[in-house]
Write a protein that binds this DNA or RNA. Sequence first.
DNA 1: GTGGTCTAGACCACC
DNA 2: GTGGTCTAGACCACG
Lengths: 133, 133, 133, 133
Amino acid sequence: MKVNLNKREPVYVQVVRHFKEQIAAGNYEPGQEIPSRRELANQLKINPNTAQRAYKEMEEQGLIFTEGNNPSRITKDGKVIGTVREELIIQAVDAFITSIRPINIPVDDLVGLIKEKYTEIERNTRGDSNDRS
Amino acid sequence: MKVNLNKREPVYVQVVRHFKEQIAAGNYEPGQEIPSRRELANQLKINPNTAQRAYKEMEEQGLIFTEGNNPSRITKDGKVIGTVREELIIQAVDAFITSIRPINIPVDDLVGLIKEKYTEIERNTRGDSNDRS
Amino acid sequence: MKVNLNKREPVYVQVVRHFKEQIAAGNYEPGQEIPSRRELANQLKINPNTAQRAYKEMEEQGLIFTEGNNPSRITKDGKVIGTVREELIIQAVDAFITSIRPINIPVDDLVGLIKEKYTEIERNTRGDSNDRS
Amino acid sequence: MKVNLNKREPVYVQVVRHFKEQIAAGNYEPGQEIPSRRELANQLKINPNTAQRAYKEMEEQGLIFTEGNNPSRITKDGKVIGTVREELIIQAVDAFITSIRPINIPVDDLVGLIKEKYTEIERNTRGDSNDRS
DNA sequence: GTGGTCTAGACCACC
DNA sequence: GTGGTCTAGACCACG
């Protein structure tokens, strides 16, 4: 994973989103260990406080849990995991429609463009693993 | 048009985007006058400086031009106008794909969701005209 | 002559400068008639008030004079004409030095560039008359 | 550095030009930190917003860059730095030629004037260091 | 009336 | 502390 310091999206939000994506994609087993806060901060070269904030956010949302001084783990609650996936999809679709609606483009043209772009990416990344964190 | 002060997207960016959408939708003739900075500020109930900033941005991008102290106008350059539409569409599609890609959803499911959402909106707004307020 | 509405230099100043240049270049005889204010405004497609302001400025500086309802004329005072020339040259040189000084470029390099540019222009305009008002 | 509030040239443009000159003169290392917007505003006794505007301009031109909320830095792109110098010189020479051309002064007279003025300034400033204040 | 700049002061989120 | 945005209000010159 890489973090972009210049985007308007705060770094800690980017981190949270990244984990959500990994969970939604099924790249994490329920209960699986995730890197410690310090470790993540080192990997991404971000401030430990930022990592801490991201983890705190995820804990509050029930995505991860921490027992005592052990490393944090992905939630074991299957329902939460399913919700994350839906949430991400709905958010993406809504944002897309909102941004494209005022332009008055026929929905079929749109679908064409998306399929095109999608297969183009598939072609470029075939064989790559999905988890490039 | 309405402006949302609470979004992360700066007001002046919202204004720029709104004009781009209007141009892309064909609601502006090349060379057409647009409201003066003060007038726009009154309409949107924003500060004249914010309007000024939006217009400056548009001027730098070649979307509008100003001769002397006359009110600004939409560019007469048809090429620019054509590009705006494409740019908006490509940006939207790219952002969408980028946000949805890591989740590994089959493209056909995606298309289904989009069409669904799209027609739902169509149903709610049928009969509305394309006002340029 | 052409006037640029988008420069920071006010239009009326551009007009004044243009006449000064013509005088300095010797393209006007002392006492020669110049276009009426209205005529000039038509030629340059500027507001008559702007033409008026330019002429007023020139009268105050003693460059032109007007007798009754007759067309204005270039001053007959040879000394004024000589001064204009010197003034323009000194202004130009001063502005140039001021802008180039902080960069620390050897004066000989500078002279080389100027000569180069100068002859380049000469080549492109040979045969042209100087008065393209 | 000093800023002149009474010149026609806007303050923020003066600031941008000053940094360009410093870069062109080699007084800044690539990647070197520059004062924060607030600090610069204090130094020059201008409003922080004016400093902000100057920095934004420089950022758009690729002269400086900002990572997250850290102080901005001079670009590390050597090409950009090289271009700045050339750009400043060419602009100055072009402006000079444009202003002096219509007067029809022999190029050798011009060179004489420049050298004269140049050495005169050298005499007055010999011993000064290249401070970057 | 127009565009343009500047100041003063406030607010926000991020780190 | 940093960058960034916004408001409010003033001023200027141009046309």
